[in-house]
Design a protein around this nucleic acid. Sequence first.
DNA 1: TGGATTCGCGTTTTT
DNA 2: CGCGAATCCA
Length: 743
Amino acid sequence: MTFTIDYDPREEEQNRQNAIYDDLNPAQQEAVLATDGPVLVLAGAGTGKTRVLTTRLAHLLQSNQAFPGQILAVTFTNKAAQEMKQRISNIMGGIAVEGWWLGTFHSLAARMLRAHAGLVGLDSNFTILDADDQVRLCKQLLEENGIDPKKNPPKAVADMISSWKDKGKIPSDVQTNEVGDFANGKMLLLYMQYQQRMKVLNACDFGDLLLHIITILKNPKNSNVLEDYHRRFKYILVDEYQDTNVAQYLWLRLLAKGSNNICCVGDDDQSIYGWRGAEVDNILRFEKDFVGAKTVRLEQNYRSTGHILAAANSVIDNNSDRLGKQLFTDAGDGEKLTVRGLWDGAAEARWVGEEIETLQNKGSSLNQMAVLVRTGFQMREFEERFIQLGLSYRVIGGPRFYERKEIRDALAYLRVVAQENDDLAFERIINTPKRGLGDSTVKTLYQHARAKGISLYAAVKDLTQTEELRPKVRATLMKLIDSFEHWRSLVDTLDQGELATIILDESGYNDMWKADKAPDAPGRLENLKELVSAMADFDSLQQFLEHIALVLENQNNSEGEFITLMTLHAAKGLEYDTVFLPGWEDGLFPSQRSMDESGVKGLEEERRLAYVGITRARKKSFISFVANRRMYGSWVNAIPSRFVDELPEEHIEAQSEMGMMQAGRSAHWDSSGFGQKYQVKPKVKTYDSREQSTVDGEFSSGMRVFHDKFGNGTIVHIDGSKLDINFDQVGQKRVMDSFVQKA
DNA sequence: TGGATTCGCGTTTTT
DNA sequence: CGCGAATCCA
């Protein structure tokens, strides 16, 4: 494999600096130079992790300890991989480098699996299914097994299967006590059926990429394959090690057994992917599994100023489950964090907008600012405000290009061309655009396919040879098959962009949108054009399909100045001068769901997320929370996050808008500011109809308030009970009477 | 079969 | 509130 990187001589000097070891502190040097044997680098936020890993790689090459292709460098995100490639290429003088093994777990595993697909009963041109395909497949399986998809959501089934795969478990590895009574206790059966279907579809999901390759490498029959990789990889480097799951760990361990030269860099305090199967325990296991492992700690933070680091340290200190690091900085105190309470989300967005403009007026660049939210829906309010203010912004991790309906449809056509067994893709477009093939036809086709154990596409071919279908339907299907055969014959002669254009025209898909008078139809046609031009960058159709399945990137960011808007998860590994952290309300952040599902563990992971958020800032962090947040079109009364309480006063500058917060005799903010320590407990009087008496209570997070258009007659749910509430809203003040309606 | 309309429910986080 | 899915009607 070859990749070429644009070489910018202006960057050369700066990038060469990355290779100068004298410039590193002693701990960093140790991590770079200890090339023999296993090394675990426990590195805090902003301690130069990436730099150490990159320098180590460069050092291995420059000292001729390894050639390109002998180093396996695994990153967590594709972006990190690109960055690493860029930096190393610059260090090495911008040459094209042959034989690189650098990328995410999934892309590297996919590459390995293509080479050995036959060993697990797949063709090397297997399709990679995305999350949506997985869910649809699960739904089909539920229906086939007569399990109610309403009680047992297909998404939950897919999640459960994925979590087994994350743990490196094939169906026979699953213990009976792991199954539970979900899906009528048939989860294991569903998992087996799911895997069978994947073989028929000649497909893999994300988890399979790793799982299959582990299965292959573990099997003594394939010892030659494993030995081959052992010979090949002299050094293994892993970034963001705290986020590896068990499957990834097993994969690494198998590959590292050869040379025993493995270097993992991670920070247990930044482990934020537990919900996806990441295990911090992998760090602990490392020292047990790789005997004689050297552990290096990086504790000097070069990113943030004193107050920011102290606040972050103090928050993370509330976690009990830590390996323990104490970060320090020489950068001076800098500015205190600003903590602000506001009335509602709109006010919060207005305030953030003001602060941004103030910073801009002082000469700060938008490129050095970011707004980091807990969940995606929080973004909307900021976008609206930024548009009003004319602030350029960019959203990372929002609705993705490749998840748009029109793009997925177009891809489905291409997938069927590339691989005719891809039932999920075929089903998606069999009647798109409308061809008069309805549910009942598809059902007949599926019945035939199931009965004969063949794919949907093959079933169509079969049935069009018989008299079973209505003549009109039969003719339509024959035409469709002919089209696909035709397009497939063009794969080798046309480039994939041209092919896509032909398919979109001949299938009538473009026409469908041209005829559509919906306001978003022209935009969809634009997106399709964009898709075609994006395809030009790839060597083959299959390569393109694999790229989009694994590398779900957003459109590349244009030139100019933008403030970045993204989730805390997406902010991993990034840094900005100024960071805004809105929505610090209990239930939102920490997320209620995380706490309900995982208890203290969940809470600690949320706290690590807070730690990640604060430590993204070099110079200044703004934290905010609101009293009222709109969710699902109704209002939720919120109380400040417990993480706000955990910020030490000496590092904080607290602001409040008490005039706005004061609220009659019920829901109110403590007028002494943030109460004892920022905590604010709105109070509510309730009338309990069973007790026939009035009770004083506190608003808790998660209570839902449904306003009618007058602001009255609203309902609050607490643990299933309902309250009717009357609001008198005068200006910003509100008075609330409540009584229990039903318990 | 397809279009129109109502219904019901959701929002963590993502490779 | 807003979207996809189920349901209803031509």
